[in-house]
């Protein structure tokens, strides 16, 4: 567990410099030196007056279990949103005016974000969870070439204990 600074929230009060026992918070890049950061120490997280520092975990828990039928319904909605994104992209491509294309692009991006949210609630919460790992295995089985090699690489780098 190491500390990370959100530079957009940081008011430069620099209290993190006072409390850090290793100097990890005092760097020329504005980012906390994660190699110098003390695992789970969190002194800077609690001291920061602008709440700009948070802890990044090395391991995340499995998402809370969800009713299978409900997860399937969310995935079905993800399908529909993805289809809507395709429709919107096709509209953008064939649009007669710049305005029509801009509206369609906004609709496509909006549909993608909704599809992603459905995917998350369908159980594909994080790269390290069981559902994701099963999906990556399936992708690796179903494809060849570059798709398979990336899927296999991701299975390896998201393996528990990494």
């Amino acid at each position: 567990m190491y500390a990370s600074r959100n530079i957009r929230l940081c008011n430069k009060d620099c209290v993190c410099l006072f409390v850090c026992p290793t100097g990890a918070t005092d760097t020329e890049t504005g980012q906390i030196d994660r190699l110098a950061c003390v695992d789970g120490c969190r002194l800077c997280v609690d001291a920061c007056p602008s709440h700009a520092i948070h802890l990044v975990l090395e391991r995340y828990p499995e998402p809370a279990p969800r009713q299978v039928a409900l997860a399937e319904s969310m995935l079905a909605l993800c399908e529909r949103k993805s289809h809507e994104e395709r429709t919107a992209l096709a509209i953008a491509e064939a649009a007669p005016t710049a305005g029509a294309a801009r509206v369609a692009r906004a609709l496509a991006r909006s549909a993608r974000i909704l599809a992603e949210d459905c995917a998350r609630e369908a159980g594909y919460m994080i790269p390290q969870c069981e559902a994701t790992r099963e999906l990556l295995s399936q992708i690796a089985t179903d494809h060849d070439g570059k798709i398979r090699s990336i899927a296999e690489e991701l299975i390896e780098v998201t393996a528990p204990g990494r």
């Binding site: 993805s82 459905c118 369908a122 994701t132």
Partner: peptide
């Protein structure tokens, strides 16, 4: 159809 959005979410 949904695969791309599942992966971009991840």
């Amino acid at each position: 159809t949904a695969l791309s959005a599942v992966l971009s979410n991840l």
